[in-house]
């Protein structure tokens, strides 16, 4: 239908230029965009990265604790990269504290960077997140909730764009087999993270963890899904290196040939 409409009210070149200028101004007014450093991911994101003044939702692929840990690390890695300057602090608001701080330090969120706020219920957590978003002293806010309706996400999105602070809403699973991302939300992007097998090493050790990252929905872009290597010590994810087994096989073949 849109294809039929195009010849009738086609915008003129100057109108387009004005719109483009407005769009660019709006982009400048927004916070900085944080690219992942993975071209396959960044190129398909609407702003070539995560909006630094928007709400992003992250959930585990299943209710299992492993996927939960993977999604937590994914959020922590993003927060660590938002807070990479010395002296920056992120706020982690939650109701039940079971994080292990040494584990977070290993994706770049050292103990001097994280301020934890433990609320009594989800409403407390959301209110604290909103307070922190409107304060410009915080580099990023992570809130762990079980339920947040559309009003709540809309409030967070508005607070994030007002305060120019990124907001990561970590949605925990409430019941088995029901994804927390199936409710409507005002988020800019919605992510679903799961654990998958890591690449086998030539010796009996655990390789770099690997995740399935699924961008369920994004504003102004298409959903996508890919497999990535987990966050390193600075919170950066990476694309899996291509077939390390082959190089070893070649070495083996060479040594056999020799």
């Amino acid at each position: 239908m849109s294809v039929q409409n195009v010849p009738l009210d086609r915008p003129r070149a100057e109108q387009l230029a004005v719109l483009r200028a407005q769009f660019a101004a709006a982009q400048v007014a927004r916070g900085p965009v944080l690219p992942f450093g993975v071209p396959a991911l960044d190129d398909r994101l609407a702003g070539h990265g995560l909006d630094g003044a928007g709400l992003h939702e992250i959930a585990a692929a299943t209710a299992s604790l492993n996927d939960d840990a993977a999604a937590t690390l994914f959020a922590a890695g993003i927060a660590a990269r938002f807070a990479d300057q010395p002296g920056f602090t992120i706020l982690w608001a939650l109701t039940r504290f079971d994080l292990y701080a040494p584990g977070l330090e290993q994706v770049g969120l050292g103990p001097e960077k994280v301020l934890y706020a433990q609320g009594r219920n989800d409403a407390d957590v959301l209110a604290m997140a909103e307070d922190a978003l409107r304060d410009d002293a915080i580099a990023c806010v992570i809130a762990e909730v079980k339920a947040a309706d559309q009003t709540a996400t809309r409030r967070l999105q508005l607070a994030a764009s007002d305060g120019k602070t990124p907001m990561l809403l970590y949605r925990r699973h409430r019941s088995l087999g029901r994804c927390p991302l199936d409710q409507p939300s005002a988020a800019m992007t919605r992510w679903r993270i799961g654990c998958i097998s890591s690449a086998r090493l030539p010796y009996s050790g655990v390789g770099r963890p690997r995740w399935s990252v699924e961008l369920v929905r994004q504003r102004g872009g298409e959903p996508l899904s890919l497999e990535v290597d987990a966050c390193d010590a600075t919170g950066r994810i990476a694309l899996p290196a291509a077939a390390p087994d082959r190089a070893i096989a070649q070495v083996g073949a060479a040594s056999q040939a020799a």
Partner: peptide, 18 residues
């Protein structure tokens, strides 16, 4: 200042670092 504000919501023990 933010710490004060959040302490008002979460209580004295609700705000901490590890």
């Amino acid at each position: 200042l933010l710490v004060d504000q959040l302490t008002a919501r979460a209580g004295e023990s609700g705000l901490f670092r590890m």
